[in-house]
Computed example of a mutant assay.
Amino acid sequence: MKFKTLIVGLTILAFSSCQKTQQSNIKQNDIIFTDSLGNSLTKKDLIESTGQANYEITRDMKIDSKAQQLHQEARQLGQEAKYDLSIAKLNEAIKIQPNWAYPIYDLAYTYLLKGNFAKALEFYKKTDELEPKGFFTSKTAIYSLEGEQLGKFPKGLYLAYMQIEWADNTNKKIEIARAITKKVPTFAPAWKELSSLLDDKTERLEAIEKGLSSNPDTETEGILQINKALILASEGKKEEAKNIVGNLIFLPQTTTTNVELAKFVLKTISEQ
């Protein structure tokens, strides 16, 4: 679940969407930033910081306590690679609260880990039906798995791509992303990853342009556009940068996450 590389002012920050813990009552479309240790960051902290930060977009929904408990139990079983038991718990949670996308999303992810790509795609699509404005990486998953089904991408590409998230150091992440772009140069999500992981600004811009020219999914495209705007802003091209994120906010296909990030970035650029 990676959404990376936002440049705020002259400060370079890499953002990742974290696995959020759904609360019983949460404010709709609030953007929350945390550091690598899980500590909350204010927007002032963010602007003055460097390094990697995580973000999540919270949504307003009351969650049944039993469904929430089953979901957490399922996630724990999944971490222990007890996938079938995890699937059973997730299905129980979905029966209790069928309008809650999170267990459906995790069901898709669990089938992905089992190598059942058809089932994974089925439940990512169900997630997208419940959350048409985006939910974590569901749109990227659909883009990838449908591409695999159609023969546009090799089978197992999305699972291989997820190894970037699982890698424990930047060099390994870069190695995996480069290997994917070399083998499948039209796979936009891998270019998005390189655009955040590489140090050189020129290389990041090249990765952004290659990603944008590869017919990306809407989530990936939004992040690439935001990243491009912020690099332009860091070079003093603020009006061009503001136009990019401003237009992104009003496009109907822009995901909720990208709308909220674009608003934050537009405000940050304007205040610099």
Rank of each mutant, 00 (worst) to 15 (best):
M1E: 07
F3M: 12
T5S: 09
L13I: 14
A14N: 12
A14H: 05
F15T: 14
C18E: 07
Q19Y: 12
K27Q: 05
Q28T: 10
I32P: 03
D35F: 03
L37Q: 11
G38W: 04
T42W: 02
I47F: 07
T58K: 04
R59E: 15
I63R: 05
Q69P: 04
H71K: 11
Q72I: 14
E73M: 11
R75S: 12
E80C: 06
K82V: 04
A88I: 15
N91L: 15
A93I: 10
W100S: 10
W100Q: 07
P103V: 12
P103S: 10
Y105A: 07
L113P: 00
E122F: 00
K125A: 00
F135D: 00
T140M: 09
L145E: 05
Q163R: 14
E165H: 11
D168W: 00
T170I: 15
T170Y: 01
A177K: 01
K192Q: 15
L197V: 09
D199T: 12
E206K: 12
A207Q: 03
A207G: 07
K210W: 02
K210Y: 02
D217Y: 01
D217S: 11
G222P: 12
K228A: 07
L230T: 15
A233D: 11
L251R: 14
T256H: 09
N258V: 08
L266N: 11
K267G: 02
K267W: 03
T268P: 10
